[in-house]
């Protein structure tokens, strides 16, 4: 088997496993896994920009929140049904990425970090400024009637745990395979090369700016899909998701799981969720334990979970 087919099989197995878990897991963990899957998609989107293309953005909360509000506001105020609302969220994130990308990509390194941070902060303040429509930090509850999905003439309710789990899985699988294809395409290889040596790529005749901009737009579109899915699947949109915290979280998930690995973001998100969930059952001061876990993990697995697996056992892992 070539490394490529092996990788494809691993990814397929993961998706099948996730499918099976819906029937095997106890209710609570099944519900949580649907959330983790949606947030993993957010992390996967971030990973494309940060892990592969080397763009350390501190503003991806803005893209997630654009998806969240694009879907949430149209569903809430205009009564859009699930598909158009999802489309609105996707479009909002993508358009925002084009504008933010053209401006922010004039910079790189630390300046890029700060510019994206400031853009995201502006977006966050805007969600507060327009409290009349967004209800600010308190947020909006999407009515259950707005969360009915029609597919092939059958109507599904997104409030049903199984429907929700399957939709989250479909989104995750689509994004996972799309990114798998993308990072192994010439575009993906160009991004990695730009990350490693931007000057050389420029001299080789690559349009560095166009490549990075495309990567950022795809990354933002994925994050916006996650945001839109979060709003529609879980019925809530609030300013908190636009705050700086949600720009740092995907960075943390990706670094924990392994930057520039296709599966890392899923592992990182899952690890972080259970680290909080489990330790908080044993102690009030659970953040100390979580903090220690992060430090130990990075001391002994500096490349993250999937990065360590790739380095030690499965060198062909994408």
């Amino acid at each position: 088997m070539t490394p490529g087919t092996k990788a494809l099989w691993v990814h397929l197995c993961l998706v099948v496993l996730l499918f099976a878990l819906n029937f095997l897991l106890p209710e609570y963990h099944r519900g949580i896994l649907s959330r983790v899957m949606v947030l993993s998609v957010f992390a996967m989107g971030y990973n494309l920009a940060f892990g592969y293309a080397g763009m350390l953005s501190l503003g991806h909360a803005m893209f997630f929140a654009a998806g969240l509000y694009g879907a949430g506001l149209t569903a809430y105020h205009l009564g859009w049904s699930v598909w158009p609302a999802f489309g609105a969220g996707f479009a909002a994130g993508t358009i925002l990425a084009v504008i933010a990308g053209i401006l922010a990509l004039r910079t790189k390194g630390v300046a890029f970090m700060i510019v994206t941070l400031m853009f995201a902060q502006t977006f966050y303040l805007a969600t507060l400024y327009f409290t009349t429509y967004t209800r600010g930090e308190e947020g909006l509850v999407l009515p259950q009637s707005a969360r009915a999905l029609s597919l092939f003439g059958i109507s599904f309710s997104l409030t049903d745990p199984t429907v929700r789990y399957m939709l989250a899985l479909v989104l995750l699988a689509l994004v996972l395979f799309a990114l798998l294809l993308l990072v192994r395409s010439s575009f993906g290889r160009a991004l990695v090369a730009i990350r490693e040596n931007e000057e050389r790529m420029r001299m080789l005749g690559y349009d560095v700016f166009a490549n990075k901009l495309s990567a950022l737009i795809v990354s933002a579109a994925v994050c916006a899909s996650a945001g839109a899915a979060y709003a529609l699947l879980f019925g809530y949109a609030g300013s908190g998701f636009a705050s700086i915290q949600y720009s740092i979280l995907p960075l943390l998930w990706v670094l924990l799981g392994g930057a520039a690995t296709t599966l890392g973001p899923i592992f990182g998100t899952l690890f972080m969720f259970y680290a909080v969930d489990i330790t908080s059952s044993y102690t009030d001061a659970y953040m100390v334990v979580v903090g220690l876990a992060l430090i130990l993990l990075i001391l002994y697995f500096p490349k993250g979970i999937a990065g360590a697996i790739r380095e030690r056992w499965l060198p062909w892992l994408p």
Binding site: L252, L255, A259
Partner: peptide, 16 residues
């Protein structure tokens, strides 16, 4: 990159 994760860990510990 490792420093970012480690100092986030430190942040959690100090804050808690």
């Amino acid at each position: 990159q490792a420093t970012i994760v480690a100092t986030i860990g430190l942040l959690y510990i100090i804050q808690q």
